[in-house]
Design a protein around this nucleic acid. Structure first.
Lengths: 259, 259
DNA sequence: ACCTGAACACCGTTCAAGT
DNA sequence: ACCTGAACACCGTTCAAGT
């Protein structure tokens, strides 16, 4: 509004890492990771592609940043819920986030160099199991089982050639008709008597499998708890061992991963 | 051996789709999907990159062919085993195959256009559940839950920045030391008191989660089976419904996907 | 400190030409 | 029927140069 004499130059908002990552997510959401090129990203940001390198080290760094941003969207397990409903809610949220950002199912490279949102999320999930009475070992089992299921489900859902129930029915009918006659009888039966049934929607399978895993974890928690250590629901599990805190010390500079 | 007069020209074995796919798998196994370029593949086959297009339509077709070849490596569920041990064995085999070909965890595009090995494998898995007494609907639940878990686990395993127990310990120690002091106490505890424990190996988690899912499916099979249809272990489940076979008819040429 | 333009070494894929 | 060489329209990334 002030100084209307000269037109403002094109890049009105200063570029920064956050804006770069946000714009990249928009592109990847719409067209997948293959649509995300530095030149296209530069276009969307009203900048030359090469300027982006002032804010991210390279494309890998960009994608890692995107993955960490996605983790920030996942609802953290609530402290006031019991472990099962807390994990259930965050798992549903996790799946929704992965459905919103399908490219994120294949990234997962944050394993090498997890960002702060990823670390925070994982810490809270682990803490939820520990406070729910899980031993450290059982927490590892639970964490692995639940997240493997969620990732795998999101990947299968993403790779389906249909999304709406209408598309599903149309696509399934074509695929069924294309199947060599009688060669895959069980696949044909499942398609005809289940997938082509009105109201079928693959996404509905998510909760079935999730509850299967959660019920299994509940059984695991209740059994074999006798030998030593804390009983379930003991407050002793609330605080991590001092051992861990001691080990968590500074690192010499040259030990740093990826400088 | 005959006619030793002139040296044989370079491409001694005739190129075909099978050889192209096999060579591509070798490259992807070693360097991931990003190492697989048409020019590199041509080099390995003693041929110019452009010759490959005589045997595959394009790179997507090539990768689909690779994915189907991988499915052919998975042990089919045995007809003589009960459903649980048959599925357990094939799941273990599935995971081994995905560990051998880590790039395959992210492909899964065969969903659009599955090859014969994929179809055969899926048909046998579905048939195993049906013959084990699962209703069509419960078969869908079981199939989704088990395969989601396997895919997700393979993906997590692949993305870990270590493979051997020694690497694991070394990497975990570095990551633990890099963690901001006290900010992620539960993550630190899990790393210090579990991951850094001698003999820890993430791969061992696979069977824990798999048996969790399989036990859950067994419970699901046993409950709520009263209302109508076939009892568990009934031979009636062995044969797919006639309805399915009827629906499995020819398709008009222009309905074909990907011509 | 941030942005730009030109350039480098790659990609997948086409097309006309060879045998 | 299969293979080749040149070419096209892209990539990620570098580097010196601008402001």
């Amino acid at each position: 509004m002030a100084s209307p004499r000269r037109a403002a130059p094109v890049p009105r908002v200063r570029l920064n890492r956050e804006r770069v990552i946000a714009a990249a997510i928009v592109i990847a959401d719409a067209g997948g990771l293959e649509a995300l090129t530095m030149r296209r990203l530069g276009d969307d940001l009203n900048v030359e592609a090469m300027s982006i390198y002032n804010h991210v080290a390279n494309k890998d760094d960009l994608i890692n940043g995107m993955a960490d941003a996605i983790f920030g969207e996942i609802e953290l397990p609530s402290h006031s819920d019991d472990w099962k409903s807390a994990i259930r809610k965050r798992s549903i949220s996790f799946r929704e986030v992965l459905a919103r950002h399908p490219w994120a199912t294949t990234v997962r490279d944050s394993g090498t160099n997890p960002g702060p949102a990823t670390l925070r999320h994982h810490d809270r999930v682990i803490g939820t199991f520990r406070n729910g009475g899980f031993s450290v070992e059982k927490t590892a089992h639970a964490f692995s089982a639940v997240d493997s299921y969620i990732y795998g489900f999101a990947m299968q859902e993403k790779s389906l050639p249909f999304t709406t129930p209408e598309e599903t029915a149309a696509m399934a009918a074509i695929m069924l008709a294309q199947l060599p006659r009688g060669e895959y009888p069980y696949l044909a039966e499942l398609t005809a008597d289940h997938v082509l049934t009105p109201g079928y929607f693959y996404g509905d399978e998510f909760l079935v499998g999730l509850d299967l895993v959660l019920d299994g974890l509940e059984t695991m928690l209740e059994t074999d708890q006798r030998r030593g250590s804390q009983p379930p629901h003991s407050r002793a599990a609330t605080r991590p061992s001092a051992h861990a805190v001691t080990l968590n010390r500074r690192v010499s500079p040259d030990e740093t991963v990826h400088s």
